[in-house]
């Protein structure tokens, strides 16, 4: 790159300004989460001081009203189950598809790829019916549905990687007396680890934030997830929303994401880059 020191300084200042602009919406929500609920809509840009300051009241109300801790547990359970299921099952399937060459596996592969471009609304209504008929409307059942929806992208990504693994390694394991299960878990899966991390992160981001599927399948009662709880705090209030508690809920919903990001930023960025190659 050809660079000049002078313009670098200008760009540095510009980047700082843009960063502040990017963070501002989050700061605004954080500030308002400490504001008395009566002032939030009227004075959203003011710093809460004096009688405007609500302390932790909003957080206590927000957590109580929406049963937020339970929603958090439900979201976490579904995300972990789905992601573990997706990584384990689709990597096995991808290996099977790549290594067993037949018409049938070819059709399977193309069906998985095809499913990636189909929008959710296309299958939404019949899917909700089938899931209800099979009594899958619980955290374990919905995780199975996520495996089905996530299979397209995940099988595609794993297959791409597996095609590059030389057969000789697996054949050596076979000759040494490994059955296919042993070969997969002792030899193939360790090689797949980088792709597995990417697949896990992409799917975790999707499942954790998904709204429509859990809303339609699990409803708004016992098993509501965080996005459903947030939407319900507005819809279920019929125009009488407790904005203070609501701001606190938004902050509580963002905190785990920021923590997750801080913990595995490197993997997330790498995942985005390798995940995007599917285009």
């Amino acid at each position: 790159m050809i660079k000049s020191k002078k313009s670098d300084k200008g760009i540095f200042v510009g980047l700082i300004a843009l960063s502040l602009l990017f963070i501002y919406p989050l700061v605004l929500v954080l500030v308002n989460s400490f504001k008395n609920k009566l002032y939030i809509l009227k004075n959203p840009f003011e710093i809460p001081m004096g009688e405007m300051f609500a302390g932790l009241d909003n957080y206590i109300q927000g957590a109580m009203q929406s049963d937020f801790i339970r929603a958090f547990a439900v979201s976490l359970t579904i995300t972990v189950l789905s992601v573990v299921g997706i990584v384990l099952l689709t990597s096995m399937t991808a290996w099977y598809i790549v290594r067993v060459k037949s018409k049938f596996t070819k059709v399977m592969y193309y069906l998985f790829v095809f499913s990636m471009i189909v929008p959710f609304q296309m299958v939404m209504y019949p899917m909700v019916y089938i899931v209800g008929q099979l009594n899958l409307n619980n955290p374990i059942g919905i995780s199975l549905v996520y495996v089905g929806f996530g299979a397209g992208l995940s099988v595609f990504m794993f297959s791409g990687f597996i095609k590059g693994i030389p057969l000789t390694i697996e054949e050596a394991a076979n000759i040494d007396g490994c059955n296919p299960l042993q070969t997969f878990f002792y030899v193939v899966f360790p090689i797949l680890k980088p792709t597995a991390i990417t697949v896990a992160i992409l799917n975790a981001m999707w499942v954790w934030n998904d709204y429509l599927l859990p809303y339609l399948v699990l409803g708004t009662k016992e098993y509501k997830t965080i996005p459903v709880a947030i939407q319900q705090a507005v819809l279920g209030a019929y125009g009488n929303v407790n904005w203070g508690a609501f701001m606190a809920m938004l902050v509580l919903a963002i905190i785990p994401i920021v923590a997750f990001y801080a913990a595995c930023q490197k993997h997330i960025i790498k995942g985005v880059i390798s995940g995007s190659v599917k285009g």
């Binding site: 067993v100 399977m108 939404m124 899917m127 549905v145 495996v147 089905g148 099988v155 296919p180």
Partner: peptide
């Protein structure tokens, strides 16, 4: 190896296929 793996369809591919059928193909 292809042949021995083929017999493992039920373990390697069936769970994903069932989930995929329920969530996508049939709907």
């Amino acid at each position: 190896m292809q042949k021995s793996l083929k017999k493992y369809f039920a373990i390697f591919a069936l769970p994903t296929v069932i989930a995929f059928m329920i969530a996508f193909v049939i709907p």
